[in-house]
Design a protein around this nucleic acid. Structure first.
Lengths: 342, 342
DNA sequence: GTGAAAGCGCTAACAT
DNA sequence: ATGTTAGCGCTTTCAC
């Protein structure tokens, strides 16, 4: 039906309409005051007839605004990421931005490469779920005058706008809940910390409640989620180290939860009779395991939304204000995996 | 440490280095044969000193190559999507492309908007996990000479390159397995078909085995996964309709599986004693439900990879060849949810 | 109400 | 080995 043999430009439209390209440009930018009603209609028809679409590359070059926001995700296969990305893309659409996305694969080298590549693309801002290994590098990026918003994972001291969840408080609350429930030993299972602010915060909170409320030594187990056998050993260790106690495992994130649940399943243990468990990240399937897995539900979608809103604020502000931390509330979903028969 | 008060360009570098901008351009493009070793070193130093990064917008405008690939995802919150996206981004990185991503939210209107927006951005190709409602529109896009690759969801008749999994055969195989296992009734649970090729194919295969192997009437249940109550009713119906039979539920995708499992869980039924179940999409947590959920594992990561490879082929080919279907194999993961006591 | 012309930052003939 | 020049497609003064 429609055809266009070769790239058609504003000039083609202008010729066909018998006006100058200035007028076409004005039309494209909605400045209809500067043309007659006839011209306007004519141009409209011709654009449709030629199936013309303005070249944003050229527009962007002129205006120095690409309409692009760069999003760097530490590990996009983490289910957390897709919810975050959904929040970001949904909100960007509202503001008329497009999203360039990159997957770091937990590799700080890739993170650096991508950041530079995004700058080359002249993205107007960067939303970063950081691998945690590029703090210095990120600071340098500031010299490119590109706003950076950290998603979920803070960097200390606070140099950038950060949108995160109240992990510290949520951990404290969960630990207190466990203490009230009658648990006497809590094992903290986590992936390696790797400078990731979120994990570190959760550990701090865990330690605090251990010493101040439970009056026990922290018991921390660092797992390698790819090593099934290793995870199983750690679970065994935890149980062996705490005979006669009321034990519960606290996992620092969803990946760890999945690994530990796998180990428990292979070991044939019954939740919560043999071992209770709870942890960060809440997913629909958690309702389906036994009588449900107690979990901290994190508002990742909203984190995405808030990141974009802050980004827009930064892009529009005239004089640079100081970085801000936006903290969103987590919610503890209590299910059967931490309910003791009383 | 490094500073740049204002946007610095190739001209600034040229001035500082005492050469013409052509030479800088050559340097940026690695054409070192065209300059002395000294110039090369000088330029290198100055670029670092000024913290200069070439403006890709300008480069792209010149070369008419944005280095961008557009990716349209029907529903990015579907776990399937994040694996697909990971495949795509990983592979794009290898070929030096960046990825612009958009979430359709299963909305065909948004799909159209985004496609146009991507064309405006001059993406070099489009990878589309389509909502299934824009077949005509997609055809028109061809007039923009932009290669389109369909990811996972085919459109019939075949007008575009498509990378998908062998759903038809996998469904037939699974159905045959169920028949062999001793099941006499298979209920097919799915979300509305909505023109989505994948779902339609699975239904066809289901029907074929019903009539040719099991010699039963197909029993299809269309669920609304948001309506918990409704799902539960359908499961009850299925059981009520088939008293005295050996029943199994076959779910057409992961979302349906989750809904149906939720209903079964709330109804207090035991898998597989009261009801057996299996279906499309395999996720780690499926090992953890009872004695495991039998599922068809789909190679979504590889689908992503193949989409990009095909895209690269299209971008580079001189004369347009006809569309091709690339079919990747699924794998049936047999677990306890379909094992009958014998 | 409309147009001519300069220029965004870069690339690529075509010189020399 | 290096520079001059003419654009890429669009926006935006400034002039009529």
């Amino acid at each position: 039906m429609k055809k266009d043999k070769t790239k058609i430009t504003i000039v083609d439209v202008a010729k066909r309409a018998g006006v100058s390209k200035t007028t076409i440009s004005r039309y494209l930018n909605g400045k209809f005051e500067f043309m007659s009603g006839e011209s306007q209609q004519r141009i409209k028809d011709i654009i449709e007839e030629l199936n013309f679409r303005p070249n944003n590359l050229a527009r962007s070059l002129k205006s120095n605004k690409s309409g692009l926001i760069g999003v760097l995700i530490a590990d996009i296969s983490n289910p957390f990421s897709s919810v975050l990305v959904k929040g970001i893309t949904d909100c960007c659409k509202e503001y008329g931005y497009n999203v360039v996305i990159a997957n770091m694969d937990n590799d700080s080298e890739k993170e650096r490469e991508y950041i530079l590549s995004m700058i080359d693309q002249r993205v107007e801002g960067l939303i970063v779920n950081t691998t945690g290994e590029n703090n210095e590098f990120l600071k340098d990026i500031d010299s490119h005058h590109i706003p950076i918003i950290l998603a979920d994972r803070p960097i200390f001291p606070t140099l950038f706008d950060t949108v995160r969840t109240n992990d510290y408080q949520a951990t404290v609350d969960t630990m207190n809940y466990l203490a009230n429930e009658g648990f006497t030993r809590v094992g903290f299972f986590t992936e390696p910390f790797n400078n990731i602010g979120t994990r570190t915060l959760r550990r701090q909170a865990y330690r605090q409640v251990c010493s101040e409320v439970l009056h026990i030594e922290p018991q921390e187990y660092i797992i390698d989620s790819k090593d099934e056998c290793g995870v199983q050993n750690l679970v065994e260790n935890f149980l062996a180290n705490n005979p006669g106690q009321v034990n519960v495992i606290f996992t620092a994130n969803g990946v760890t939860m999945l690994s530990v649940l796998g180990a428990i399943h292979r070991m044939g243990l019954c939740i919560p009779r043999d071992i209770a468990i709870c942890g960060f990240d809440n997913w629909p399937w958690m309702e389906l395991i036994g009588s449900g897995i107690t979990a901290v539900s994190q508002p990742f979608y909203d984190v995405g939304i808030e990141c974009v809103k802050r980004m827009i604020f930064r892009v529009q502000e005239k004089t640079k204000s100081s970085p801000e931390i936006i903290e969103l509330p987590n919610q503890l979903m209590i299910r059967g995996s931490t309910k003791l028969d009383k």
